[in-house]
Design a protein around this nucleic acid. Structure first.
Lengths: 270, 270
DNA sequence: TAAAACTTATCGCATAGCAATAAATCGTTT
DNA sequence: AAACGATTTATTGCTATGCGATAAGTTTTA
């Protein structure tokens, strides 16, 4: 009867062995997060078995974790449909981060100021692996789409903030990020050849700012400058995001480059 | 030797017994979240024993959970100071919520539109227990302080969005919320008497909007309307936040009441 | 330089959490 | 409507998992 136990970890094996060898790893925690991250735009409300399938758990585990997470307030169960969805409490953890981050704390007033001065959309982003994450944003009246929210991720290599950050990373680290990245073309302007990217990083380092024109989004036009810690290590980036329909590339540079750099420097110095 | 085990759960006992009786509860998950929520503005980077103390765990547990959370990418350990801090990945969970929420999805374009139209700060909030939570915000150029971020909580009873939502809750539920709330005065204008609050709820229900003038913040002036699901149950609120220095209470009402209501209705209908 | 405080590593044991199963509920089909 | 299939809820015995004590190593303080 115990024979049926092992094969039930289907496709997750590659991850699982890593933990087997790690006695300090609490597997339940990872499973809980797996359950939570099953929910997204296309999976807003899910039944128990759907969750089990999507998270790679058996129904019993799914039962235990949904129960636990419901009691903790992160999930809500609709008593009629028996489906679960994420609750607004899911914002708590992110909020703790925003409050605890020295960088966010320093940056906020400067970003607000920059957004008033330029009347354009201003973002603070940080690097996580090969991606940049949107940490705070001030959206201008010119913004059209509302898809980018706090926590949104984009590949670093084809965004202005990503390039700005990479340009100040020790070269080995920057190249490691590029190597881990899937260098594919997302939009008409994507720079996706490694050699070109390295050149772009060097140029951005010299200039003190980075740009991206239709590299990720169609019609995006963005300029960014890195925020550095006292040792010169990049902690994040400030960027101004507009659209090709409103500015030509060279206009973006002439209008905004010194402003983003000044803002980034001010934050770095604080 | 087993005698020393029980007394180590110091002040958390009241919560802990609830779980003992619940066989589906996975205690590790709760502990993991307790570790994560130890970090805030005044606790940005913490050592192991500080975490243990703050989360009410022994050092061994703290060790295991910090290790687990570090491997999962939610914590970062500074190799020099041996201190932990939250990483930007902490925004993921909240981002999943924002993407998975039908309400957010519906509301975003309308909120953006309202912010352009009024040039004032516009928020989407939801109720969680006795508090409202800021889910999305479009900050205007008039905004001065940057303290309110996504995920920020305020007592429902003394905020315009809170009152707007409570006003559409079944009366018993609304009163239950008031009873659970600590009805204290936060600012010069706080309505903190239960009878006054009930009157305020009724009036807000009739009007279709709610206002708050210096009820929570000093100098805040806010007007809100509830977003209702097809059954008329309040899912959240739209509000416009300005300051007393820029508008008199009656100006806020005349300028913005119909706009917030129109926006809230439009979202409700979608 | 001693010692106090904290972090890292190790380990045996008990229990917390696992997975299988059974009962109940829902919703679909003929 | 009845009967079936699918999904959710409840229960249970077993053991692997995670617990917490302890000891060894490291850094900070006096």
């Amino acid at each position: 009867m115990a024979t049926a136990r092992k094969p039930q970890l289907k496709g997750v094996t590659s991850e699982a062995d890593g933990k087997a060898s790690d006695p300090l790893m609490v597997a339940s925690v990872e499973k809980a997060f797996r359950v939570l991250s099953v929910f997204d735009r296309h999976h807003q409300a899910l039944g128990l078995s759907q969750i089990a399938a999507a998270a790679g758990l058996d129904v019993s585990s799914a039962q235990r974790f949904t129960h636990t997470l419901t009691r903790l307030g992160y999930l809500h169960k609709n008593p009629d449909t028996k489906h679960f969805e994420l609750t607004v409490k899911s914002l708590d953890l992110g909020h703790h981060f925003l409050r605890a981050s020295r960088l966010v704390d320093k940056a906020m007033p400067y970003l607000l100021h920059l957004s008033k001065e330029t009347e354009e959309t201003v973002n603070l982003t940080m690097l996580d692996g090969t991606e940049i994450v949107f940490v705070t944003r001030f959206v201008s009246r010119h913004m059209l789409n509302t898809d980018v929210t706090i926590g949104t991720r984009m590949p670093a290599f084809c965004t202005a903030p990503g390039v700005a950050i990479l340009s100040r990373l020790p070269e080995a680290e920057a190249i490691a990020v590029l190597d881990k990245s899937e260098l594919k073309a997302y939009a008409p302007g994507t720079t996706s050849k490694k050699s070109d990217l390295i050149r772009k990083l060097k140029q951005s380092a010299l200039q003190g700012y980075a740009t991206a024109f239709e590299e990720f989004y169609h019609s995006d036009a963005s300029i960014a400058a890195p925020i550095l810690d006292p040792k010169g290590y990049p902690e994040g980036a400030v960027n101004i995001a507009t659209s090709r329909s409103r500015y030509e590339p060279d206009e973006v540079v002439t209008k905004f480059s010194s402003l983003v750099m000044a803002t980034a420097h001010a934050i770095s110095r604080t």
